[in-house]
Design a protein around this nucleic acid. Structure first.
Length: 551
RNA sequence: GAUUCUGUAGCUCAGCUGGUAGAGCAGUACACUUUUAAUGUACGGGUCCUGGGUUCGAAUCCCAGCGGGAUCACCA
């Protein structure tokens, strides 16, 4: 059957518009759904289930049941509270009012079982015809509940809690109200306890990654573990925020639209301000602004910062991502390592109650202290090569021996980085601080106090991936200017990610910045580890996707 | 960007060597007052991603395109 439908807007707002269902199938092949009225001239093919639900909407209206009532529905308890705390001998929860989606319905004549899902979880409902319809009129049960409600509809119920013969804590419903009708069917995911293994078996899970990411609302509605991941992400952020606030640091906000992008090596998104007629960039980092605040006299500032990088996407990269950057005056990178350990250990405890976390096939233990290795020590440990004193030619030969691919444009620092990335990083599963990087790769870090050619920088590596990056911040304005100049040279040679010179930032440094330790920690990557997620898309509500074709 | 896999009913998937589509759940109808993947009986539901091509005939083979996944490259 072809269904012809006016625009969704028209359907929602004016149910008096009839839904025409043409019963003559295929008899007139050329007959197409009539064009839809409305601003977009939008057409839509509806499935039979969607048509049925729209008809039910009309039926409800005829019965005087509002499908989308305005007034509030008073919720007094959540499912989880009841399941955790109900005791038959206490006879508690004898007056409850709950709301949520109807997720399953098992009608057995004059009585039914159903499942209600609220924000805390699912609970079973028992609906008895003669109790929700005490009088002669059994419409509410026979028509509304049994026929006109669908899985996915929001309902409110009042009743009392009891335990069924099967031992299931259940709400015995005495009042039932439709709160919002769902016009599209939700995927139905079913679970069963496997007697043999004691494991929950899931049937017909909603698993297609494309649909899960594009329609996250469905994913969340139907896959409870997805919700849990995002709750953990929020707890992670809150735990870090509490930790930093307890230390007296100030949470701040700095510009997302920046006239110059800086603080990292990356290609930016570019936009335009009409009134000022100027180019602006979405920030790739907020480092240079936070340092200006240190110049201004704040001793500790931090920001959870959405940053934007116009680069490739992968399971570790999304064009917009979140970092927490922290700058603390009068400290150095050794001090910052202690802080990172303490903070991340605290996060693990907050989320899991212990420091050992299953990530893929590995168990990662965040308990302090973490291993600390200089970059040269790490390379020696994993390759047997002591490269600390090598010149470029020797490094090149060593890289060759180690089967690390190089190209001629690479300098010393890049070669070292390649060796590290190839042979060391993937093997660092337990949290490890790698310290003391070559100066060429770190234009904003302070020169090492006693090792020429290196800077006071560390990264924490975990599960084979960088999770943070920190320095003793460069506060010598002359040195900083030189480093920027070197970046400009790289830029001229075609490095699209070289930093640009920020004259105002240099001016700030010239007024004097105290010695400062700085940190950037990747919230998405840390969330991936803390929630055992394999892809960044699993810790972002709405990961970037190519536009969907809606025709 | 490269390689590779993939796109069939609302969801999860079958559909061999080409003969215009099947299952389970979901839906509809009937029965059933403590079930739980409820059950029983019956019924409906598909632009087989899109566009070309080969063929008497394409979900199936070929080409191109558009989505998506994985791996690699890029990304300190």
């Amino acid at each position: 059957m072809w269904l012809t439908l006016h625009s969704p807007l028209a359907v929602c707002q004016g149910r008096q518009l009839d839904l025409r269902v043409e019963s003559s199938t295929k008899s007139v092949a050329s007959e197409k759904p009539a064009p839809i009225r409305g601003p977009e001239n939008f057409m839509q093919h509806l499935s039979d289930q969607e048509i049925q639900r729209r008809h039910k909407l009309e039926e409800l209206e005829k019965l005087g049941v509002e499908a989308y009532p305005s007034e509030l529905f008073d919720v007094t308890f959540y499912a989880k509270e009841i399941l955790d705390n109900y005791h038959p001998e206490l006879n508690n929860f004898q007056e409850v009012s709950m709301a949520g989606r109807l997720m399953s319905q098992r009608v057995m004549g004059k009585a039914s079982f159903a499942e209600l899902m609220d924000t805390s979880g699912r609970i079973q409902l028992y609906v008895n015809r003669d109790e929700i319809c005490p009088g002669e009129d059994k419409t509410l049960y026979n028509n509304v509940f049994k026929k006109l409600l669908d899985l996915g509809d929001f309902i409110g119920v009042k009743g009392h809690v009891f335990v069924t013969q099967m031992g299931e804590t259940t709400v015995h419903v005495t009042e039932l109200k439709l709160l919002a009708k769902a016009l599209r069917p939700l995927p139905v995911v079913k679970e069963k306890m496997d007697e043999a293994t004691g494991q929950k078996v899931t049937y017909d899970a909603f698993t297609d990654p494309e649909q899960r990411y594009r329609q996250r609302y469905v994913d969340l509605a139907v896959n409870p573990q997805v919700r849990d991941t995002f709750v953990k992400r929020t707890q992670l952020v809150q735990s870090m925020r509490n930790f930093l606030n307890d230390k007296g640091y100030l949470e701040v906000e700095t510009p997302i639209l920046q006239p110059l992008y800086g603080g990292a090596a990356a290609r930016p998104f570019k936009t335009h301000h009409n009134t000022l007629d100027m180019t602006l960039y979405l920030r790739i980092a907020n480092e240079l602004y936070l340092k200006r605040l240190i110049v201004g006299g704040f001793d500790g500032v931090y920001e959870f910062s959405k940053d934007f990088r116009n680069e490739g996407m992968s399971r570790f990269h999304n064009p917009e991502f979140t970092q927490m950057e922290l700058y603390v005056a009068y400290k150095d990178y050794n001090w910052m390592m202690d802080l990172v350990e303490e903070m991340v250990e605290r996060v693990a405890m907050t989320l899991h109650g212990h420091t050992e976390i299953q990530v893929g096939a590995n168990v990662i233990n965040f308990q302090r202290p973490w291993q600390r290795l200089t970059m040269f020590e790490a390379i020696e440990k994993y390759t047997g090569k002591a490269i600390g004193d090598m010149d470029e030619a020797a490094l090149r030969a060593t890289a060759h021996e180690l089967h690390v691919k190089l190209d001629p444009s690479m300098g010393k620092a890049k070669i070292i980085d390649e060796i590290f990335g190839e042979h060391v990083e993937p093997r660092l599963i337990q949290p490890t601080f790698i310290t003391d990087y070559p100066v060429e790769m770190s234009p904003l870090a302070k020169k090492h106090r006693d090792r020429p050619g290196l800077v006071e920088r560390f990264e924490a590596i975990c599960n084979g991936k960088e999770i943070c990056n920190a320095f003793s911040e460069l506060n010598d304005p002359i040195d900083q200017r030189q480093r920027f100049e070197e970046q400009l040279e790289l830029g001229k040679r075609g490095d699209t990610e070289a930093m640009v010179l920020d004259e105002d930032f240099l001016r700030a440094l010239e007024y004097g910045m105290p010695p400062t330790a700085g940190l950037g920690i990747g919230i998405d990557r840390l969330s991936m580890i803390m929630t055992n997620s394999n892809s960044i898309q699993d810790v972002l509500f709405f990961p970037q996707m190519k536009p969907e074709k809606l025709d």
